[in-house]
Amino acid sequence: MSWLNNVRNALAFKSKKEQPEENLWHKCKGCGQMVFTKELEENLHVCPRCEHHERIGPKIRFGQILDQGSYAELPSPKVPEDPLKFRDSKKYVDRIKAARTATNEADALLNARGTILGHRVVMGVQDFAFMGGSMGLAVGEAFVRGVENAIADRCPYLIFTAAGGARMQEGILSLMQMPRSTVAIQMLHDAGLPYIVVLTDPTTGGVTASYAMLGDVQIAEPNALIGFAGQRVIESTIREKLPEGFQRAEYLLAHGMLDMVVHRRDLRERLAQVIGYLCGNRDAAAA
């Protein structure tokens, strides 16, 4: 029966290959320790040893923040995909295809409509895994659509930012999304509705210089990197050593650029509290 043992061994080997051991573990980017992937997921993707907040994408974020069964993703807007026919070491269209394959998302900003502890909200989430969360035509259009849906629903627009800045492959068109998003925020204010920002690691460049810092309430996750230019660029420009923790959430909070820094486990309840304060009994009246 040696042939039967060979089949059994082959099946066992295949099973091990389908579930590689490294998927069971995650190396924390904060402390460098190995953490069970399941334990990390159960802890909201926060390291149970050092409290480092791992970067997470829109699907996970929607599930963590919005009430279960209450939300539906909004369709991603259609925009020109390669308006400048840009090419560096790769074609821009090839980079987009690779990012879509890796993330299973249309672009770097997704919106969903739902509730947070009963409070209605339209929520946008940027995904750093999609070309560094960079802001191009698709992100700008998704932001505007998110605001428009919030105005139609008479509810706040909430956004979780995570970006390396503007998308260089779209040149000036990417920079045009900065004033577009600013105008959209003004439309939200004209409608008497709140705009709430949660800055996550990292939020930099043109996103910081526009909609990331224009919230009625500015919240950040612990130790999130937040800034415009990089620390080395600033130091070489001003020829001075920057303070410890410069551009981290806690430093910005201490210097008046943020309203609060909130741990991920408390974020859902804090957002519901903030929306309740800003909207009063609007949700109850709508119900």
Rank of each mutant, 00 (worst) to 15 (best):
L271S: 11
Q186C: 01
R248P: 08
Q33Y: 06
Y92N: 05
R100M: 05
E51I: 08
A72F: 06
N223K: 02
A129Q: 09
P194K: 10
E244C: 02
S210F: 02
P222H: 06
T203G: 11
R113A: 05
G114C: 05
V274D: 04
L252E: 04
K241Y: 07
E39T: 15
L253C: 01
L74G: 12
L271E: 11
G280N: 12
E250T: 06
N149G: 03
M168C: 01
A152I: 05
E244Y: 02
I234M: 07
Q177K: 08
L137P: 10
P83I: 03
P194C: 13
T103C: 08
F130A: 03
G230C: 05
L44R: 14
D107G: 14
G215D: 10
I151S: 06
I226G: 01
P179K: 09
P77Q: 00
D67Y: 04
G32W: 15
G124K: 08
K17C: 09
L214E: 14
N223S: 11
V233C: 03
L84Y: 01
G245D: 03
P243H: 12
G133E: 07
I219Q: 11
M123R: 11
A224S: 07
G164F: 06
V262F: 15
L84D: 06
C47G: 14
Q177H: 07
L175M: 14
V233R: 10
G63K: 03
G140T: 09
A112E: 02
L199R: 08
D67R: 01
C155Y: 00
A163W: 06
A184S: 07
R100D: 03
A287V: 00
M135C: 10
N223R: 09
G69Q: 00
E170A: 00
E105H: 05
V46T: 15
L44I: 12
I151T: 08
P202I: 09
I185W: 02
K29T: 09
K91C: 01
E73G: 00
L74C: 10
S76W: 06
D107C: 13
D283G: 00
S174L: 03
Y211D: 04
E235M: 13
P20W: 13
N223L: 05
R49I: 12
C279D: 09
E39D: 15
A142V: 10
F228N: 07
Q177W: 02
R265P: 08
V122A: 02
Y251P: 01
L188Q: 13
S181V: 05
P156V: 13
L110D: 03
A99W: 04
W3S: 04
V144G: 06
L44A: 11
G192S: 13
C28L: 07
L84M: 08
L175C: 06
L175G: 10
M178Y: 05
